[in-house]
Design a binder for these strands. Structure first.
Lengths: 152, 152
DNA sequence: TCCGTTTGCTTGACGCAGCAACTATCGCGG
DNA sequence: CCGCGATAGTTGCTGCGTCAAGCAAACGGA
C-alpha cells in the first residue's frame, strides 16, 4: 500500500473483470441465503458452522478453529454458536487439555438440521453457480481463486 | 428450488471450487476494506457510490439508479447518501421532472475525496486480485462471472 | 376533477459482524 | 514458585444493510 509505485490504471478488460466479480460477490451469497430462508432452512453462516463441525472426527472443534474454518472473527463465531446452542443444535464442552478452550460439539439435532438443509443448499449452489460453469475448466478457476484467497 | 430433481452431490472438483470461491467472497472485500480503512480513506460502500456518480455526465443520479448501480437496497443507499451529505461529499437536489425524485449530486469535495481514495483502492485491488490473475484469460473469467451474476 | 393505485424515497426496528476491551488460563523465565 | 506476556474466549459498542411501514407525489380511469 506504499504509494511509491507507478499505479497504472486498469485496462478496460481488467475494469470489466473487477466489476463482474464485484457483482458476483454481492449477488451470489445473497441469492443462496434467500433460497435457504425461503425454504425455511438454516442461514448460511449457521449452515457453514455446522458443516465444518460435521466434517471432523468427533463432530467437535475449538472455537478458534471453527472461526478460522468459516473465515469469521472469533467474536462473530461466539455469537453464532450462542444462537445454535440456544436451539440445541450445538453444545459447548470445556476443553480437557486447555482450561481456556471450549469445544463446539454438534448434537444429534444439529446433525439433523444440517441434513435437512443440505439439499436446499446444494440445489441453490447448483442453480446459481455450478450450472453456469459447466464445461469450464474448474481446476483452473480453483487454482486462481486459491491464489487470491491466500493474500493477507 | 423444487426438490423433484435428483440432486447429484458435488464432485470433489466442484466442492473444491465452491470452497475456494467462498473464501474469496469473504476475504477479498474484507482485505480491500481494511486497506482503505488503514489508509484513512473512504469505506468501500461510499467509494462505490461516489464512483458511480462521478461516471455520469452531470455527476448526478436518482437514488434508485444509484442503488441499482451499487447493487444495494434503496434504503441502504439512503443511509449512505445521508452520511455522505453530512460530510459535504454529496448534495441532494429535488428532481425537476418528478416531484417525488431526488438526485444525489457529487460535490467538489466529493470528487476530491474520490480522487484521494482511488489510488489506494487501485493499489489494493491490484495487490489482492489483479496480481494473482496476471497471465490468465481475463475475458474468459469475466464472461463466466457475468453469467453467474445474472441469475435471479 | 376526484379517488385509488403505483412509484420514489425515508424512517424505525432489527439482526449481524467487527473491533476493542476485558477476564481467565497457560506456560515460560528467573 | 512467582510474575509476566501470550493465548482463548466473551461482551460492549458501533456501523452497516435489510425488511416493513410510512409519507408524498404522480398517474389513470370514471
Amino acid at each position: 500500500m506504499t504509494s511509491e509505485s507507478a499505479l497504472t490504471p486498469m485496462t478496460a478488460t481488467e475494469e470489466d473483470f473487477v466489476r463482474a466479480l464485484g457483482r458476483v460477490l454481492t449477488a451470489l451469497p445473497r441469492a443462496v441465503e434467500l433460497d435457504m430462508a425461503r425454504a425455511g432452512r438454516l442461514p448460511l453462516s449457521e449452515y457453514e458452522a455446522l458443516r465444518h463441525l460435521s466434517e471432523t472426527e468427533n463432530h467437535a472443534l475449538r472455537m478458534n478453529e471453527l472461526a478460522a474454518a468459516a473465515d469469521l472473527s472469533l467474536s462473530g463465531m461466539t455469537r453464532i454458536v450462542n444462537r445454535l446452542e440456544q436451539r440445541g443444535l450445538v453444545t459447548r464442552m470445556k476443553c480437557a487439555e486447555d482450561g481456556r478452550g471450549w469445544n463446539a460439539v454438534l448434537t444429534d439435532a444439529g446433525l439433523a438440521a444440517l441434513e435437512d438443509s443440505w439439499p436446499v443448499h446444494l440445489a441453490s449452489v447448483r442453480r446459481h453457480l455450478l450450472d453456469h460453469v459447466a464445461g469450464e475448466d474448474l481446476a483452473q478457476f480453483t487454482s486462481v481463486l486459491k491464489r487470491i484467497a491466500v493474500t493477507s
